[in-house]
Amino acid sequence: METKSIMIVGVGGQGSLLASKLLGRLLVDEGYDVKVSEVHGMSQRGGSVVTYVRFGDKVYSPIITEGEADIIISFEKLEAARYAKYLKKDGLVVVNTQQIDPMPVIIGAAQYPEEVLTELTDKGLNVEAMDALSLAIQAGSPKAVNIVLMGRAAKQFDIPYERWITAIENTVAERFVEMNKKAFDLGYNY
């Protein structure tokens, strides 16, 4: 099997670590060779963050470059646009429509391109936008945005629903399992 490349992007503090942990563990259990790569440290302080997940028979590089990603899971609109060039021609962007202003926008030094997702669609990119924040709140916590989006992206994998649920049970702290299962379900059946 050819190596598949998944990018998880967002703003530092949005919970991309849990999403990649869940996905990584699940893929190992499914018997794939897996590499997960993320950068810690300064970029985590509210900056743009990216995690690479790659799996297949044999994975060499832990990172993903332009035109390579099968799926980009974005926790925020602007970040989807920032990393769109990493998407393969027939790839898919699953994006939370939430807008988080970066500091240059907050202080008026730059403008937030509000219609950027439409722009990407117009360029032929396959973009699935969803209000994952509302669904996360519905599930019980605004922090569950990550799992809602994983739920939406899960259909792109050749892995049965039940295995994802088991992976959530194995990854998430016990008291958050039910809430995260609900969040996953809301994303999966969106």
């Binding site: 300064m42 302080r45 332009e66 035109g67 970066p102 730059a110």
Partner: peptide, 19 residues
């Protein structure tokens, strides 16, 4: 041979900052 597609809009940077 891999090429990506970008939006034409300027994407403002998101530098790290104090919490």
């Amino acid at each position: 041979d891999k090429v990506g597609v970008s939006a034409d809009s300027v994407i403002p940077p998101r530098p790290p900052m104090m919490c």
